[in-house]
Simulated scan of single mutants.
Amino acid sequence: MTYRVRLRGLWPALLVLTLVGCGTEHVGTGSRAPEDVPDSAELEARATALQTRTDRVYVTEVAGYTLATQSVGVLGDDGFGSSYTDRNGHVIQLGVERADHSPADCGKKPPTDGAADYTVCEREGESWYRATALGHAYARAEGDLVVTVSAALPGVDRATLRTAADAAHLADDAELDTILPPLGGAPGSQPVERGDLPPEGDGAPDNGVGASG
C-alpha cells in the first residue's frame, strides 16, 4: 500500500485504520553478507521507482514491532514513509520529508487541516514531542529533512514511541535491499491483467460467466 500524504504534526488517524484493516506482510532487516547486497546504483534505481531517494529511506527498531512491507512508499513529494506493527495491531509510523516546517511548529498555531489542538509540545533531547487527543509523535530535524515517528493513542505509549524515535536511522545498503521493492515490483508498476477483455481488437469486455476467472 503506497501512500502520498503531506505530514503536518501527526499522521491522520484514517491511515492507521487503513493499514490495520488491509492486512500486512512483515519482514525483518537482519544482517546481510556484503556480497549478497546489490550495488548502490541498483538500490538508487529501486528508490527512484518508488518515487523517493535512498537518502530519504530510514528504518527503526522497537521490540515486538516489525515492518509492514505494504506500507512502504513515497511521502509527500519525494519523502519516505513506512509502518511497523505488533501482533495486537498497534502501528508505529515512520516518515521522512524535506524540512519545509520545523519540528517546533507545534508550539505555534495548530495545523489548519482539521487536526485537534496540541495538548503537549515540548523539547526532549534532539527531538520535539507533540501530542493531541488522537495521537502523538516525536520529530527531529536532520539536515534538510524532518524525521517523524508517530502513533495513535492509547495504543502505543510514549516510552515505546521514544524508543522507536531514538532508533530511527538512515538505512544502510543491506536494509535498503530488504525494504525497497525490486525493480518492477513497486506498487502500480505492473499492469493489471483483465480476464474479461477480448484477446484481440477493441471490443467491449466479455461479462459472461467465468470470463474473468
Rank of each mutant, 00 (worst) to 15 (best):
L19S: 09
V209L: 14
A171F: 02
R6Q: 11
T132F: 00
G143Y: 07
A211R: 14
V156C: 07
S150V: 06
W11C: 07
G23I: 01
E175Q: 14
G23A: 04
V149E: 02
D172V: 07
V27F: 04
E175S: 03
L183G: 11
A204D: 15
L94P: 01
A68Y: 04
P182L: 13
W128M: 13
H136W: 05
G81Y: 01
A141N: 09
L161R: 00
F80P: 04
D202T: 13
D166C: 02
D113Q: 02
S40R: 15
R87E: 12
V16G: 09
D55W: 01
C22S: 12
P191Q: 12
G125L: 01
C106I: 04
P182N: 10
D100E: 08
V147Q: 03
T132I: 02
T85G: 05
A141S: 12
P111R: 05
G201D: 14
G188M: 10
G9C: 00
G79H: 01
P110H: 05
W11K: 11
S127C: 03
L10A: 08
C106S: 05
A133Q: 12
G81F: 03
T29K: 03
T48F: 10
C22I: 11
Q51P: 00
T48A: 14
P181S: 10
D196T: 13
E35M: 05
C22W: 08
P110D: 05
R140C: 04
A41L: 10
G184P: 07
A116D: 07
D144A: 13
L75K: 02
V147L: 12
P181F: 12
A41G: 06
D77Q: 11
G114V: 00
R4W: 09
T2M: 15
H101Y: 14
P191K: 14
F80Q: 08
E122M: 06
T132P: 01
A152I: 13
L7A: 04
I92E: 04
V147H: 06
Q51A: 09
L14F: 14
V37M: 08
G21L: 13
E122N: 07
T132N: 02
E44V: 08
G208L: 12
A99F: 02
R123G: 07
R140H: 12
G30H: 06
V62N: 02
A133L: 09
D166R: 15
G114H: 01
P205L: 09
L50R: 04
E124Q: 13
A167T: 03
H26E: 15
T132Q: 03
D177Y: 06
T48Q: 09
S83C: 10
E126V: 10
D206K: 12
L153P: 06
T29S: 07
A159E: 14
